[in-house]
Design a binder for these strands. Structure first.
Lengths: 229, 229
DNA sequence: ACTTATGTTTAGATGTGTCTAATCCTTGGT
DNA sequence: ACCAAGGATTAGACACATCTAAACATAAGT
């Protein structure tokens, strides 16, 4: 059996590989997980002994196929839980992340199946992130492009919003920026500050926030859908 | 913060006090939790330092008011989860115990509230055990009497069935012995074997099983209710 | 009251996950 | 090609939860 902590390391490496590419340095992982660098060194050592990561000393770490499978399973649990909490327990999408983090390590296969079934096997969670299939094939995490990579006057549809920061999510929800929203960039200021038009409302987003929103170019069928709360 | 393990010790002491009376001996607790006696000694020591149990060396241990409150909270989580899994995720009552054991330490106050709300604040779980109220007042765990304490020809209503053994529960469910069932004792054989009549079917229950079923004397309004699967 | 059986605690070790302090690589600048 | 700066690893320690083996206390039986 794998500990909660080890699963957290694998999930962290999975996300960092996705967002920043492999290999992941010790101090980056330490910062992400809020532990010290020596702790990461020794933990990564154990993960390597179990064949879950490949590691080159002084270089960094990356997931093996086995490690990725474990990470994908944890991610599946996380995203199913987020979807379930939102759909069936009336949670707000900005509140579900921490609850899912706590529960994701402790649900059985049976629970996973029943939750997926109750939801009708959805393909994405409330933040727009893809829910891995039960066979644990790594999903395509690359949909869309980062909002901060776009320029003025582009009309874009929000595909995904990172689920990691509850405050940020509450703000975005209030601003009407949720998966499915169509917006138009009206201004890109210094330091990456992006101003967007959402259904007539102007919203200014700092670069750090813009980086966590993934968008696609809006097509004609993506008519500026008014969100009903 | 209290560890999962400490919560498990408190819950175990709570149940053992209920069923066997305080104080609880080291080896009884060790057997119940499937650890060795020295492990219990040292753990009980830590619990005492935190003011959660009272302990007298070589005598045994019992919960303080604080310790009981923690235990009752864990029990509330457990029984709410059992009810929720049965009610909303279509689990069978014989399957929910292990799942609830795994999740009970990891749900937030918010989750607890929402689950209770979704269930309409029930008073008992699917096994007939009382669900503690949110203020964590210890519930009355003494409803009913043990089936093995009754004699031939008594007509009894099943109040509660212990949730600890999944095989036993599956057997009882198959036999139609669930909370609410009205049965009549037709025979009490040596070694405590109890034979009961459930809706015309004769069922023989070993003493260990009879001990885990709590019953009350059936009244006229408890008409032999046919269970619909 | 003595002795023995049973149950409890102490002593000492192990594995996991974490830390700080110290040492050791690697790499970029000159 | 050197050296300084920054990152990474080693060394050593600690808290937690567990174990086995040994010592100890209590209670029960003669």
């Amino acid at each position: 059996m794998l500990s909660d902590v080890m699963e957290d390391y694998l999930k962290a490496i999975y996300y960092l590989e996705r967002d920043e590419g492999a290999p992941i340095g010790t101090s980056r992982l330490a910062e992400y997980l809020d532990v010290t660098a020596p702790t990461v060194t020794s933990m990564v050592d154990s993960l390597e002994e179990r064949g879950l990561v490949d590691r080159e000393k002084y270089k960094g770490v990356e997931l093996t196929a086995d490690g990725e499978t474990v990470a994908v399973e944890v991610v599946r649990h996380h995203r199913l839980l987020e979807a379930y909490l939102t759909e069936h327990l009336d949670y707000d999408w900005s509140e579900v992340h921490d609850e899912a983090d706590a529960l994701e390590h402790h649900i059985s296969e049976e629970f996973e199946r029943r939750v997926a079934n109750a939801l009708g096997d959805p393909e994405v969670d409330p933040h727009g992130d893809p829910i891995p299939s039960p066979d644990l094939t790594p999903p395509d995490e690359g949909t869309g492009t980062r909002l901060d990579e776009h320029g003025e006057n582009e009309r874009l549809k929000v595909e995904r919003v990172s689920d990691r920061d509850a405050d940020e999510l509450a703000y975005l929800q209030d601003a009407g920026v949720v998966p499915g929203t169509v917006l138009e960039i009206t201004d890109v200021a210094p330091f990456g500050m992006v101003t967007v038009d959402v259904d007539g409302d102007e919203q200014s987003l700092p670069e750090s926030v813009a980086r966590s929103i993934r968008v696609s170019v809006a097509t004609d069928s993506d008519e500026s859908v008014v969100e009903e709360a």
